[in-house]
Design a binder for these strands. Structure first.
Lengths: 99, 99
DNA sequence: CTATCATATCTATATTTCCCGAAATATCAA
DNA sequence: TTGATATTTCGGGAAATATAGATATGATAG
């Protein structure tokens, strides 16, 4: 849980999380993998939009996957990221119930 | 909000917050100010229980007041701390709704 | 007034985080 | 194979944070 809060203590990471909540409101349609595949958005697209270096984007996104906030799928040379809604719900429950 | 997550990124501070949720389960009755006064628990008591230095306790608690998680009342030489339930509810709502 | 207790603040140092560029790796296409 | 693109890993400097000890302030008891 502590780890989760650390990850959320950064403007860019929060932003990425909210962008991915409604990808179609924030990314061009061609930058979002088809609903059927449910792949989300790939790193370079997120990186450009966030205005951070690729190494930083990579580190951010993998830390978000590690703590369970995001899920990723590698497809060829691309890695697609999308939210893990369950984890986010869990976090809200924890704050409401336990904290 | 970012600030809030930073504050929550620390084991001791999370612990203090949960202790203060049900003070009677975690502190001696005489260390809790009367319900009527609704003052909560004073710093030195929290500090001893947390096993941190006095200066650290002071910094933790005032940072928690600053970000709205706690409320404090100074009474003579003591400062009593209690939770700001509204802020905590707001946080859960933010995560559930906006994030 | 003096001593003492509770708290706040100041100073200093160790640790962590932020975030980049460069290099390495992976994949695909020609 | 060569080249282009996507991603990951490595190394590190700057900035922020953590946290202790020393000191200051303020209240209270004797």
């Amino acid at each position: 849980m502590i780890e989760l809060f650390k990850i959320l203590s950064n403007e860019h990471r929060i932003q990425i999380l909210t962008w991915l909540k409604h990808p179609h409101d924030h990314f061009a349609a061609e930058d979002i993998e088809p609903e059927v595949k449910d792949y989300g958005v790939c790193m370079s697209v997120i990186q450009r939009k966030a205005g951070i270096s690729q190494s930083t984007a990579s580190a951010y996104l993998s830390s978000m996957v590690n703590c369970g906030l995001l899920k990723s799928v590698r497809e060829g040379q691309w890695t697609y990221y999308k939210r893990n809604e369950e984890k986010i719900r869990e976090l809200a429950e924890y704050i409401k119930g336990t904290l």
